[in-house]
Write a protein that binds this DNA or RNA. Structure first.
Lengths: 191, 191
DNA sequence: ACTTTAGCGGAACAGTGTTCCGCAAACAAA
DNA sequence: TTTGTTTGCGGAACACTGTTCCGCTAAAGT
């Protein structure tokens, strides 16, 4: 049961939690590419312990962002009953952007072609894309979105637009995403 | 003069050229993050020689892309007399996208916050932004572009949209850039 | 002819991710 | 309890990066 405070297994679970907390902190402070040793140090454990719980560095990254991704999915499910699909999509993308821009590590991680971060990629494919896809479909059905837009490409593009840098900050990213969305609405004009 | 075939200086210039050629090849084959040793090997020199000519790895990257950036600037200057500024901007952005997508290393390099690649960044600031800025200004003057759009943010956004990955290829990037541009045109509609 | 110096190659150093191995403590068996 | 087994742990060790350093050769200078 849940009261196994002193057992070996409980201890392991505690260090795992400590690692997740430490990693999340270090990621926001120094980015996703922060050294494993720093994370281990912050959690007060040795590097070996990190690899015991997360065989690859990338798995730790994925674990850190997983529940945050789940939050995005949850929001999409809330919005999926909305009477105004276009507005719902806007809202959701807005939240997604907020998320990407705040935990600025995720944007980099999503873009990275690191083979290990593939799992994060497929996590997005498995969860985020279907969730977003529903909103997209409904918007398309109402004629509020160009049918050629796929949920995947859209999310990918939004993710890329949220990669910040010197002279290109949060507001710029938000503005550009808005413009992109405007361009994704059904083309009134020709061709 | 130019006929110093056997001099020491001429030899140095030759190895420098060989390095640039080798680096360009390696960059398209394996990306900008390819190991220095591979480049040295391809050029048939030792690593020390690479660092003699390019004190930091990043300087080599900059040198490789510099003249390709110059090509983009030249195109912008050609187009700046065009009677249709909106069309001209479209054409130029199209060429820029083609460029980014082909030498796919540059996109990564431009996005990277690597301190050393700052010089590439400022190269873009110094040359590309003014060149593009002219086209943007003219398009704005004709009312074909939202005045709130700055050349820098636009190029930055386009650069980000051109970061490819599995399931997000050249065509996706091109389509998304077109949509972004559509969203940058003067907002007919409300707010 | 002798000295100086530019250009070069590659060993050596430093910082990453990752693996390996010995150890101590919790558990299982006797 | 005593003995053996397993789990979780720490940190040294390894492989692969960028980068520096140093000795060597041959051209340039005297």
């Amino acid at each position: 049961m849940a009261g196994d405070e002193g057992t070996r297994e409980a201890g392991a679970r505690r260090t795992r939690e400590a690692l997740l907390v430490a990693a999340a902190e270090v990621f926001v402070e120094r980015g996703v590419q922060a050294p494993v040793r720093d994370i281990a140090g912050r959690a007060g454990v040795g590097v070996g312990t990190v690899y015991r719980h997360f065989p690859e560095r990338a798995e730790l990254v994925v674990a850190v962002y997983r529940h945050q991704i789940d939050d995005c999915v949850a929001l999409a499910e809330e919005l999926r009953e909305s009477p105004d699909p276009g507005e719902a999509l806007d809202q959701w993308i807005g939240a997604f952007v907020e998320f990407l821009v705040t935990k600025h590590g995720l944007g980099v991680a999503l873009q990275s072609d690191d083979a290990g971060l593939q799992s994060l990629h497929s996590l997005m494919l498995d969860k985020l894309v279907p969730a977003c896809g529903l909103l997209v479909e409904r918007a398309v059905a109402r004629g509020e979105l160009d049918p050629a837009v796929t949920a995947y490409a859209l999310m990918r593009a939004v993710g890329n637009l949220c990669l910040l840098g010197p002279g290109y900050d949060r507001e710029d990213a938000q503005a550009m995403v808005e413009r992109l969305l405007a361009g994704c609405r059904s083309t009134h004009g020709g061709q």
